[in-house]
C-alpha cells in the first residue's frame, strides 16, 4: 500500500511538473525579456541585463496615463457594481417574496450571457444617446455587465451569515439598512473583498469594452494602450513591450496574491461559485 502511494505521488509529481513547465515558459519569457537589452522571442538569459526597458516605458504617454485611466475606469465601475450588489443581495438573501425567484433566475441567466455579443448594439446605443467616448458611460456599462455575477456571489456569501444577530438588532429597533451596515457587512467582509477583487481583476483585463466605447487616445485604459503599443511597435520592441506588460499586470497579480493569502482566494471563489 505504502509503495503504491509512493509511486503514485511520483507519477503525479512528474505529470504536474510537465504541465507546470508548459505554463511557466511564457511567463518566464515575459520576466526575462523585460530586463533584456536585446530581447527576442526566445527564453534567454538577459544579455545585457538592463532596466532600460522599464525606464523607456515609464512616461506619461505609455504608462502613467493609461494606468490612471484604467484605475479610474475599473475602480469606478467596481465600486458602483459592488455597492449595487451589496444592496441588492440583502433583500434577496433575507426576505421571501414571489418576485425573488424570477429575479434570481434572471440574474443567474444573465451571468451566462456572452457580453461580447451585445457589444455591437451597445456601441449603437451609446452613439445614439451620446455616451460614446465618455468615461462615465463606459463605467456604467462595465458595472452593469459585471453586476449579475456580483449579485449572485454576494447573495451566496450573505446567505452564510446567520440571522440570529440581525434579529437581535431588529428587536433593538435598527432599520434594515443599519442592520446591513453594522451587523451583516462586518460579518461577511471576506465575501465582499472577494467579490470586489474578482470584479476589479476581470475589468482590469477587459479589452473589448473600452476598445469599442472609448475613442480619444487620452482616455484609453492600459488594456487598449498595450494593444496599440503591440500593433504599432510589436515587431521591434519586445523588451519594452514585456516591461510594460509586467507593469500593467502587476496590480492584479498583487491583488490576487493578497486575496489568496488572506482569504483563500480563488479556492474560496470556486467554492462559492459552485462545487
Amino acid at each position: 500500500m505504502s509503495d503504491r502511494r509512493r509511486t503514485e505521488r511520483l507519477v503525479a509529481d512528474a505529470c504536474l511538473a510537465v504541465v507546470a513547465a508548459c505554463f511557466a515558459l511564457p511567463l518566464l519569457w515575459l520576466v526575462l525579456a523585460s530586463v533584456n537589452g536585446h530581447a527576442d522571442l526566445r527564453v534567454a538569459v538577459p544579455h545585457p541585463f538592463t532596466t532600460g526597458n522599464f525606464r523607456s516605458v515609464l512616461n506619461t504617454d505609455t504608462t502613467y496615463r493609461p494606468m490612471l485611466n484604467s484605475l479610474v475606469l475599473c475602480g469606478g465601475a467596481t465600486a458602483l457594481c459592488v455597492g449595487c450588489a451589496v444592496l441588492a443581495a440583502y433583500p434577496l438573501s433575507r426576505y421571501r417574496s414571489r418576485l425573488k425567484r424570477p429575479f434570481l433566475i434572471t440574474i443567474l441567466f444573465a451571468t451566462g450571457l456572452p457580453i461580447t455579443a451585445v457589444m455591437v448594439p451597445v456601441y449603437g446605443m451609446f452613439v445614439q444617446v451620446d455616451l460614446i467616448d465618455t468615461m462615465y458611460g463606459t463605467v456604467y456599462f462595465l458595472a452593469a455587465s459585471a453586476l449579475p455575477f456580483a449579485i449572485w456571489l454576494m447573495k451566496n456569501f450573505m446567505d452564510g451569515v446567520p440571522m440570529v444577530l440581525e434579529e437581535a438588532a431588529w428587536t433593538d429597533g435598527a432599520s434594515p439598512m443599519q442592520t446591513l451596515r453594522r451587523v451583516v457587512l462586518p460579518l461577511m467582509w471576506p465575501g465582499v473583498v472577494v467579490v470586489t477583487i474578482y470584479t476589479f481583476i476581470a475589468m482590469w483585463g477587459n479589452f473589448f469594452v473600452p476598445y469599442l466605447l472609448l475613442l480619444s487616445p487620452d482616455q484609453l485604459p492600459a488594456s487598449v494602450s498595450i494593444f496599440n503599443f503591440f500593433s504599432a511597435r510589436g515587431t521591434v520592441q519586445y523588451g519594452q513591450l514585456a516591461a510594460f506588460s509586467v507593469l500593467y499586470s502587476l496590480p492584479v497579480v498583487v491583488l490576487y496574491t493578497v486575496m489568496s493569502r488572506r482569504l483563500g482566494g480563488g479556492f474560496a471563489l470556486g467554492g462559492a461559485l459552485k462545487g
Binding site: 505554463f23 499586470s249 490576487y256
Partner: peptide, 14 residues
Amino acid sequence: IAAWVLPEVVAAYL
C-alpha cells in the same frame, strides 16, 4: 492561476 490572473491582452501577447 498566474496565467488566469494576467490581463487578456498580456496573455495573448505571451
